[in-house]
Simulated scan of single mutants.
Amino acid sequence: MACILITGGTGLVGKALTAFLTGKGHEVIILTRDITGKTAGNGASFAKWDVKKQELDIAALQKADHIIHLAGAGVMEKKWTEAYKKEIVSSRADSARLLVNSLQQNSNKVRSVISASAIGWYQPTGTVHTEEEPADTSFLGETCRLWEESVEPVTALGKRLVKFRIGIVLSKHGGALKEFMTPLKLGVAAILGNGKQMISWIHITDLCRLFLFAIENEKTGGAYNAAAPAPVNNKTLTLTLAKKMKRFYIPVHVPSFILKIMLGGRSIEILKSTDASCKKIMDAGFAFEFNTIDAAVEDLVKRN
């Protein structure tokens, strides 16, 4: 079994991925700023890194066969002030730079680096997006471009690089699904804007499976969209969730101008349509377990 070093391992995806990988018998080392009092167990452990100081535990790096790079400040968690926008970018690019420099300066046996990116890469064109398209010039498009470029130098070190442009992650433990469910618990199906904006989504289990697929399949390389085969619009997702929760609800459209007042620049991403094709990763041999929003939501609501 492999030893896998994970950055961003304490976040929503990182926690699920750690449990998934250790459940498959792999050893996981999670890089974190503060290891005081932290114990993982079950095949997982913690090691220290400090992105600002550009330092990490070299022993942990040298033990790793693969690196999964998830680290980055939450995009939707805070208001997009100029300072926080800089943090969103630097938390991704500077952490990637630390990994690249550490691999370059120290002997290691790392065979592949699997890096997160996001479908924020794409322009709001209303067409189906494929991996060959250039990055959007919006803030998130530029963030994704800098994110991917910052990790690209590992290829010059002989490491296989896979970049997953991840769609909206659906998980029972938080993230977008929790935001959709909160008003539904009060009987309100909150449809954002006109509700027609397309959402490329992925079930957390399939996302974990994708990372393992990339590790195990040495022919994979480059950018792939990590999104299920059947994107849906905001209204369909909201009403599907309402029906699966089996609650009385009243559909309510939240006007775009209200979202812009409440969320500022973040509203752009909520109102933008993104239909990302998963053909490339499926052609590589990956099969999604949750192909439809009905199947995904039913599974997640059942687990709540």
Rank of each mutant, 00 (worst) to 15 (best):
V297E: 10
R266Y: 00
I250C: 12
A296E: 03
D275I: 14
A276M: 11
K246P: 00
F290L: 11
A242Y: 05
K279N: 15
M245R: 11
R247A: 07
P251W: 04
I258Y: 08
K272D: 01
G265K: 11
I258Q: 05
K280I: 00
A295S: 14
A287E: 15
R247E: 06
I261L: 13
M262E: 11
P255L: 02
G265I: 02
A295Y: 00
M282F: 00
K280E: 09
K280T: 02
K244F: 01
T292S: 15
I270Q: 01
K243L: 08
S273T: 04
L271K: 03
A284Q: 14
D275A: 12
I268F: 14
G265A: 04
D294Y: 13
P251K: 03
I261R: 04
S256F: 02
A295T: 14
S267N: 04
I281S: 08
F288K: 06
F288G: 07
A296H: 03
I281E: 07
V254R: 11
A295Q: 15
D294W: 13
K243N: 13
S273V: 01
I268M: 13
A295L: 06
L241K: 04
K246T: 06
I261W: 09
F248E: 04
E289Y: 12
L259A: 02
K243P: 10
K280V: 00
I268G: 00
E269R: 02
K279H: 15
F288M: 08
L259P: 10
Y249C: 12
E298R: 09
E269C: 03
V254D: 03
K246F: 03
K243V: 00
M282V: 08
S277C: 09
K272Y: 02
I270H: 00
I270A: 14
S256A: 15
K260F: 02
A284D: 07
K280A: 14
F257Y: 14
F290T: 10
G265P: 01
I293Y: 04
K246W: 08
I258H: 08
I258W: 12
L241P: 11
F257L: 04
K243W: 10
E289Q: 15
A287Q: 15
F257T: 08
A287S: 15
T274C: 15
R247D: 05
E298D: 11
L263S: 02
S273K: 02
K272E: 01
P251S: 08
K244I: 04
I270F: 09
F286H: 07
M262Y: 07
L241H: 03
T274Y: 05
I281M: 06
G285H: 09
Y249A: 09
T274V: 15
T292N: 11
D294R: 10
S277I: 09
T274P: 00
E298K: 12
P255F: 03
C278V: 09
I250P: 06
S256P: 03
F288H: 12
V252K: 02
P255T: 03
E269M: 10
I270M: 14
L241D: 09
C278K: 06
F286L: 01
K243M: 05
F257N: 06
S273P: 05
R266C: 01
E289A: 14
S256Y: 01
K244S: 05
K260M: 05
T292K: 07
L271I: 11
P255M: 04
R266D: 01
K279S: 13
M262N: 07
K244N: 02
N291P: 14
K279Y: 11
K246E: 12
R266I: 10
